[in-house]
Amino acid sequence: MKKALKIVSSVIAILILLIAGYYLYQLYIVPEFTKLSVPTLSYPRQSVFYRYSLQLNGLDVIFGGQNMSSSQITTELKEDMKNIKSAGFDGVKLSYSFQSNNYLADRIALRAAQQGLYPIGLLQGHQAKPKDRGFTPEEMGEWQKFVRDEVSSNKNIIYFWEIWNEPSLDLFKYGSPEEFVELLKATYPVIKEANPNAKVVVTLSAEGRDNTGFEDQVLSLGGGDYFDVLSFHPYGANPYLQEDQIKAAIAREQSLVAKYNNQWPLVISEIGQPASEVSEEEQARLAKFVYGVAAKINLPVTWYYWSDERLPQNNGGMGQGANWGLIRYDGIKRPIFEAISGYLGSEKAE
């Protein structure tokens, strides 16, 4: 009996070691050997924002609105990235939040890279400080460490990093234009040191009719020396996509870049339209309009966002429960998917 128990204990110990070894291999070895070639384009041509929500639920987790085991998330992520690639996208945008655990974002970036997708990292810190000021020296040091750690650990797969999200808007404000320039000055060299091949993206306008003057103030203060790609989000309001505002925003940004001797390539690093605000058919028509206008001038577009399945249902807010996704909560593709398909997959970032 003792001999049998000893054998069983040995078998269990071996299984535990094998399982532990597998997870350690996935955690440390696989990322080291997953690499993407340095892109020649300044930004992926067609990318999509990957929004998600994760909550612990005992030994399981709630991923979006679905309860599943932690191991099942890996399977779901792999399938999502495969589907994004198959749809014709060549980039996936992910949020990296200051003073938060970004482990899952790193794993999503890894799964994206394994499918040949170029991850785009958005470095944001909206909840970490009051909006009416810049970082204190101590906070800035912590921010720089956060940036350095994320860029360094993903240097073989993430070549595009965006600093802050929509700083021109009160909702996401980072102090004054002068303070935002200081943030760029403090962040840009950290990114370049951690990954010399990285492209730094900044969004200085987030409205179709932008009367804030924020972007011109930042550029006149020399902020343009601390990024490589200039982004804008030509949103309207009710609905978010308005054809006249999109055209006007593109013309405004082209004029602004020309004023500064065309130093930066232009991209739309976020644009979307919730089907809760318009019909799904109108959502599809508006999206097709955006992609059509952008295609005429080779303007890269990032659609906001991939799937409602990965967010809580009926949770309210811009990013959650508002039906922005190309895919519904039930997993069915919206008409927008077919509407923009002809614009996807024509060029790659590599």
Rank of each mutant, 00 (worst) to 15 (best):
Leu266Pro: 01
Pro300Trp: 06
Glu309Tyr: 11
Val290Tyr: 04
Tyr305Ala: 14
Gly317Ser: 10
Ser269Arg: 05
Tyr291Asp: 02
Gln242Lys: 08
Asp216Asn: 11
Gly224Trp: 00
Trp264Gly: 03
Ala295Pro: 06
Asn261Arg: 13
Glu243His: 12
Asp244His: 00
Val218Arg: 07
Ala206Asn: 09
Asn315Lys: 15
Ala295Tyr: 10
Gln313His: 15
Glu270Met: 06
Glu280Phe: 10
Gly223Phe: 06
Gly292Tyr: 05
Gln254Cys: 02
Ser279Asn: 04
Gly316Thr: 04
Tyr305Thr: 14
Gln263Ile: 12
Glu282Asn: 14
Ser205Pro: 08
Pro274Trp: 07
Leu299Asp: 01
Ser276Gly: 09
Glu281Ile: 07
Asn261His: 14
Pro239Ala: 01
Pro274Arg: 09
Phe214Ser: 04
Gly316Met: 10
Ser220Leu: 13
Gly208Phe: 05
Asp210Gly: 06
Ala295Gln: 09
Glu270Trp: 06
Ser205Trp: 04
Val293Arg: 05
Phe232Leu: 10
Leu256His: 09
Leu299Val: 04
Gly224Ser: 02
Tyr235Arg: 00
Ser255Glu: 12
Tyr240Ser: 11
Ile271Thr: 07
Pro234Leu: 00
Leu311Met: 13
Leu241Ile: 09
Lys247Tyr: 00
Gly208Met: 05
Phe289Met: 15
Asp225Gln: 08
Ala258Phe: 08
Gln254Pro: 02
Gly236Thr: 01
Ala258Pro: 02
Glu253Pro: 15
Trp264His: 13
Val290His: 06
Leu266Glu: 00
